[in-house]
Nucleic acid binder design. Structure first.
Lengths: 338, 338
DNA sequence: ATGAAAGCGCTAACAC
DNA sequence: GTGTTAGCGCTTTCAT
């Protein structure tokens, strides 16, 4: 009966593995972390010993000794939006196989909560941080900068922070929608927007620019500062039909607006693919299954997550990607109902 | 210029706080953890010193020393389902204010992945575990049992594991739906089910039982082993109308089936609230906004998360809740479209 | 009720 | 390339 487990945790420790492999603790440590200076033969022996004992490293000890954990902090504004879930999945697909853990911080679109989360999670000494967007409190920005932990920002490309960003351009999304509609022969194009924040206006600008570049002009703008919703989509769609009945292509700046419109069209028996092309931004969950032919411009969530993760890995490896901005474009997805 | 920060992390340590407060390190530790044996006056002094230095405890050191982290491991089968997101939010609302972190493990309905997650996360020495359902591999169950970490199971009440469960009874959900329909004067009741797993059959049994108890009998059963989907809902709804046109109340065992049916009804101009009552299980995201009057039986996700978290806290406090089973019932939610 | 000493399991720094 | 030593920052144990 050999003593191969720690009294405190009941699990074998590095010392046990080292003893079994017949090398020093530090060599064991290095071998297990794939530090290149260890002789291949020793690596072999150590691996075998670790396996024999079912050794699993103690992350707390590792973090304490190295002042750096194997965790990546990911801050998202919401979990209720599918967009971020898919982004998280893509991130995890990069990090999990490499032995990193993900700490997920949901700040509910609240910058004070974001600040608190940062303060809390920073105490865990994450080795990297993935952030969503630019806007955050000065305190939060300062905490991040002071921490010195490598970080990558996702989704937005704009802003003034001198750091690595992975996202897409709202303007080119708008442009693509216009090109798509024009290529299908649509000429009476409308833009329907709510909320009217920067992003919406950038999408609109790209949309208009592309129409102008093609030598046409946009037929109509239906705009309102109200927050976007399915109901509002119905209302604005009615307004569109009233004000500009000859419209044959619409870009709804938000998914729920587009959905409300499609739904209303369905009710009224308006055949959307034939009389009208509708494009929405992002994809309301389930919408694709319910509404006949809704074209959708999707934020490239998975690509953004994956690329952001990959760039963060590069930073962790010591590469310098200063102020790199990666524009991943977007995807035009044509959905069809049953 | 006093030396109030650790060389390794740049942050103040317990020793710094102790020095400033003029007490020993261990008293400082106890004061900060609210160990009751410390004199109130010292607690005061220590707190002040900690605040003055912006001291934040180092979780790695704490975990290493005590062989127990402040993390709660939560295992969910998916993040893409809103049900689990809402459950997670409710759990977090209990734990975050008390200083616990949440480790979220998404096993994608894959029991091998669940096993891997358990093995990995167990190395972080979580102080508690929240699990979803009963079915898991024998290895996983063994890992959990051997770990000795307190755990609570969510969602299902059945199963044979002798542990604390918080969930709801599928049978009583079915019963409630029948009662609801009967109370609205519906008499020709139908059950539409897909997938036909245990849970679906339990819902059906409860539904039938309640109808029988009220002295009536169920008009028709539309069953298929195919997996549930919106499309299938359309198909089954057509079958229902063909086979049993006089039906005036239907219980769809899944949300997407109900949605497909409502959608189809809408297309055909069948007025659901007048001619037919439709009840679906759970709420397809967005469905409430799109379909006129869909009654929904909702898994009490938030209540389950909160109650499970509270029960786990009790276990952490040393209370014994052996084999406790908490049935949280369910909610009947009537949704109306715009 | 408070404190001193001894680790927790690992890695950084420096030797050899 | 490998090993020795000395902590990382905290809590446990045991004394007082």
């Amino acid at each position: 009966m050999k003593d191969t487990r720690s009294r405190a945790t009941g699990r074998p420790t590095l010392a046990h593995v080292a003893a079994l492999a017949g090398v020093s603790q530090i060599t064991t440590s290095r071998a297990l972390r794939s530090v290149p200076t260890v002789a291949p033969e020793l690596v072999e022996r150590v691996r075998a010993a670790a396996k024999a004992l079912s050794y699993v490293p103690n992350p707390a000890a590792r973090t304490l000794a190295s002042a750096r954990s194997q965790s990546i902090l990911v801050l998202v504004p919401a979990l209720s939006n599918h967009l971020f879930i898919e982004t998280l999945e893509a991130i995890q697909a990069v990090f999990r196989p490499r032995g990193f853990e993900m700490l997920i911080g949901n700040y509910h679109y609240d910058s004070y909560e974001e600040e608190e989360l940062i303060r809390n999670y920073l105490s865990h000494q994450p080795c990297g941080i993935l952030l969503t967007g630019f806007k955050r409190s000065a305190v939060a920005a300062d905490l991040l900068a002071t921490s010195g932990v490598p970080r990558v920002q996702m989704m937005d490309l704009g802003g003034d922070t001198a750091s690595v960003c992975v996202g897409f351009s709202q303007g080119s999304a708008g442009r693509a929608v216009a090109d798509h509609l024009l290529s299908r022969g649509r000429r009476k194009l409308a833009f329907v927007g709510a909320q009217l924040d920067d992003r919406v206006m950038q999408r609109r600008a790209g949309f208009q620019q592309a129409i102008a570049d093609a030598g046409f002009s946009q037929a109509v703008d239906i705009l309102t500062p109200e927050p976007s919703s399915v109901d509002l989509g119905v209302t604005l769609f009615k307004r569109l039909l009233a004000e500009c009945p000859q419209t044959d292509g619409v870009f709804f700046c938000n998914d729920d607006l587009a959905f409300g419109a499609c739904f209303e069209a369905l009710r009224k028996g308006i055949s959307i693919p034939q009389r009208l092309s509708v494009v929405g931004f992002n994809d309301l969950p389930g919408a694709s299954q319910m509404v006949p032919r809704l074209t959708t411009v999707q934020t490239p969530r998975a690509s953004i997550g994956r690329q952001a993760a990959i760039n963060l890995l590069k930073l962790l490896d010591g590469e310098t990607l200063d102020t790199e901005r990666v524009d991943l474009g977007f995807e035009l997805v044509v959905r069809e109902s049953s």
